[in-house]
Amino acid sequence: MFGRLNLWEASWEEDELTKKLREGYLTALQELDDGKLETTIPRAFEYVRKLYPVNKERAFNVYHFINTLMEEGTPMILAGKFNVVEVFARADRKEEPRDETKKRLFEIYNLLKRFINYTDERIRDIPAMLFGLGKTV
């Protein structure tokens, strides 16, 4: 398992595929459009799924890219405009959003949480495929 992780970390580099995915992701994030994010994220994982049998290094590259963007990039980008710690904490407590912008941030947070935790049905197979971890997480 750790050998695969080392391969994934060592292989990170931006290529045309990740540039295209990044552009779509960042545009959706800038527009606070969870619908566009919900298209872009599964598309990235679909590339991982397609690439893995033929080019494991590239599959891990895309996997690392999308996870880094969701887990680290998104909070940093949003923190430039919003108090994401407060907003995401409120979303986690299932509070009602106070305005339309907060509602959109809550939706983005909940969407990212499903993908990061692999609870979204469309990507549940990814940890098993890449890391040999059970069929679902």
Rank of each mutant, 00 (worst) to 15 (best):
M76L: 13
N55W: 09
L78T: 07
L69K: 09
Y52Q: 06
L26G: 01
Y47R: 12
L21Q: 00
T18E: 06
V137L: 15
P42S: 04
K113C: 12
R43T: 14
I126W: 04
A59G: 05
L78R: 05
I108Q: 05
D120M: 13
P42I: 02
R58E: 08
K56S: 02
G80I: 06
F2G: 14
L21K: 12
K36L: 13
H64P: 04
P53W: 04
K94N: 14
A28P: 03
E13S: 07
E38A: 15
K36I: 06
R43H: 12
I126A: 01
R124W: 03
E95M: 08
L111H: 11
N6V: 09
L105I: 10
A89Q: 13
K19D: 14
P42K: 11
R22K: 14
K19A: 11
F60E: 01
E107S: 15
R90F: 01
K113S: 10
F82T: 10
R4N: 04
E14I: 01
E9T: 13
D92G: 14
W12Y: 15
P42V: 11
D99H: 01
A44G: 13
W12D: 02
D15W: 08
A44N: 14
K135I: 07
M1R: 07
D34F: 09
R93L: 11
I116D: 02
R58I: 00
D120C: 04
L21W: 10
T40N: 10
L112N: 11
I66N: 05
N117Y: 14
N117C: 04
R104P: 07
R22Q: 12
T40A: 15
F60P: 00
